[in-house]
Design a protein around this nucleic acid. Structure first.
Lengths: 336, 336
DNA sequence: CTGTTAGCGCGTTCAT
DNA sequence: ATGAACGCGCTAACAG
């Protein structure tokens, strides 16, 4: 492969200075239409591509964004990534995709590598402890946290946040079940460490209590956020608490596991037990019976995160430091 | 944010030349243990991060790879992306994620932007016509095509390929159905433009014919590669060809649609009709009945693609220009 | 409207 | 084992 064409080549070939070529490329400053055309012609003829690397070095601005998530092959994060990429692409930015696999060590390594790549900012879904995370993000020129509440005292570092209103989601689902006459509602809460799970639990507890039916703590079990986790945990809970009439599950996968448990135990859904999931992943509508669930705007989560980040990068530090996205109740046959 | 720390700062602070600092960072050349430690101490104290940008400009080597796919939120490509990112990360490379949304214009724009970013290579899943695609990839320092056969006459441009053996997959599924006594096997072929669909059709036709049961062309219908597409197309096919005893579907989503059609038509699966899907997406094991399908090593597809690309980038142009990955038959209740 | 000068932060020569 | 000078390709800040 021959040496790359540079501004110098274009300038020489077109009989102008490098500066003029630069102006043509960047549509900046005034250039006479005549020279502009002449230069553009040479650029096209030589198939010239300006070096983003050199430009970045000169402008101190790379046109790249880092996206750190646990795992793209998780449908939730895949949608986030798609939203993020779409907005970034439309605004002329490229996205570095970084999976952490839930590993704190990888989180550190990723953030580190992103620093070296001199990204203009990062969008991050992290499991790190807040204190440490804030310290790391302070090293980045700009950052937005996904689905995680920043403590107010940290907003001096101007970390943006985009999150789902999981408390509301928990309320919506619980209220729906209450409205349909359920009083003994179990809760498969997901991993104890999940911020989302805690918020949904809060919505569940609040709503039950406000309605005058405070739930028995024994109706709440933690579980892995997977089909297997849901199956195992539902099996236990339904045996220990056979009088429950409804089950609110941490997410749709857990709900699918609960469905399987019901098959095992010979309990008809929704007749013997109503089941609600969370997220509305595509699978939710395809299982038997289709799941009542709470749709989370995942694509929007990524899209808005990048939008907020770009605002910050561009200096418009609007009042809007925290974006909260609303979930939507989706009623299907598993809890009609 | 204060000005970034540079080699110069470290050098001054440590009382050595920039060159020595550089040697310490890159573990190159001989540096006395004493000075190495002294320099390292300053680096740590100032929390110095070498600028990848400047380094790239100097070395003509960016440590980045472009990944162009239609859509990360498609589980197939999400798995590919994960495999790609994993290998890249392990080798110290970062990945630019680029979605094309099946839009040729976006493909051009993406490849263009990747050129400007001076990626060291690209991994590409493209819908572009071969001639044009090869022309574009020739501009990149290295490239690997996913799931697409390069015509032999183009291998002078050294475009690598990693693909699934879809013909074999078609054979495996068809043979399984034949083995279970099915003779009248329908085929929902997916979109007519799909390379994969054509290959699977080939496997199906070959196997049926070789077994002495050449299929009636009327048993083959095209369809959109979605649940809705499968539902509509299965509905039609099963009405027109009520004597079919088995259905081989383009992918698992289509197969789920076919399952729904069977519910509508009152045909029990697998008793009245056996159904096989393709891909083994997570959903496949969760529907009722669970789907017999053909597992495609999607993660491996991305992982091997990046591995091959890195080999090329590093100059080891091994004989292995084309990697073919084998699918695996997964037998479940929909076609036991 | 156009050109000149001077770096951006690093690695690669060559010296020492 | 260490250092000085130069260049990677481009743009910001000034001229003219």
């Amino acid at each position: 492969m021959s040496r790359n064409v540079t501004v110098a080549d274009i300038a020489r070939e077109a009989g102008v200075s490098m500066m003029t070529v630069s102006r043509v490329i960047n549509h900046k400053g005034e250039v006479s239409a005549a020279t502009r055309q002449r230069v553009q012609k040479v650029i096209d003829r030589l198939n010239y591509r300006p070096s983003g690397i050199a430009r970045s070095l000169a402008t101190n601005h790379s046109g790249t964004i880092g996206l750190m998530i646990p795992d793209v092959s998780n449908p939730f994060f895949a949608a986030v990534a798609r939203g993020a990429e779409h907005v970034a692409g439309a605004e002329g930015y490229n996205i570095f995709l970084c999976n952490t696999e839930e590993d704190p060590q990888r989180e550190l390594a990723v953030l580190h590598s992103l620093e070296e790549k001199r990204v203009d900012g990062v969008v991050v879904f992290s499991r790190l402890e807040t204190r440490q995370l804030v310290g790391l993000l302070k090293q980045q020129p700009a950052s937005v946290l996904i689905n995680r509440q920043t403590s107010k005292n940290n907003n001096d570092h101007a970390i943006g946040t985009v999150r789902l209103d999981d408390v509301l989601g928990g309320q919506l689902v619980t209220r729906h079940l209450l409205d349909r006459g359920h009083r003994r509602i179990g809760f498969l809460a997901g991993p104890p460490t999940s911020h989302s799970g805690q918020a949904r639990a809060k919505g569940y507890l609040q709503t039950m209590t406000a309605a005058g039916f405070p739930p028995d703590p024994l109706w709440v079990h933690n579980c892995a956020p997977t089909v297997e986790g849901g199956l195992a945990s539902a099996r236990d809970l339904l045996r220990l608490q056979p009088t429950l009439t409804a089950l609110f599950c941490f997410n749709d996968l857990v709900a699918v596991g609960a469905l399987q448990a019901c098959v095992e135990l010979g309990r008809a859904v929704p007749h013997d037990l109503a089941i609600a999931g969370y997220d509305d992943i595509p699978l939710a509508a395809l299982v038997t019976p289709p799941l009542t669930t709470c749709r989370t705007p995942r694509y929007e989560l990524g899209a808005q995160a990048v939008q907020l980040l770009l605002n910050r990068i561009r200096g418009c530090n609007e009042p809007c430091e925290e974006v909260v996205l609303q979930p939507e109740l989706i009623i299907r046959a598993s809890a009609p």
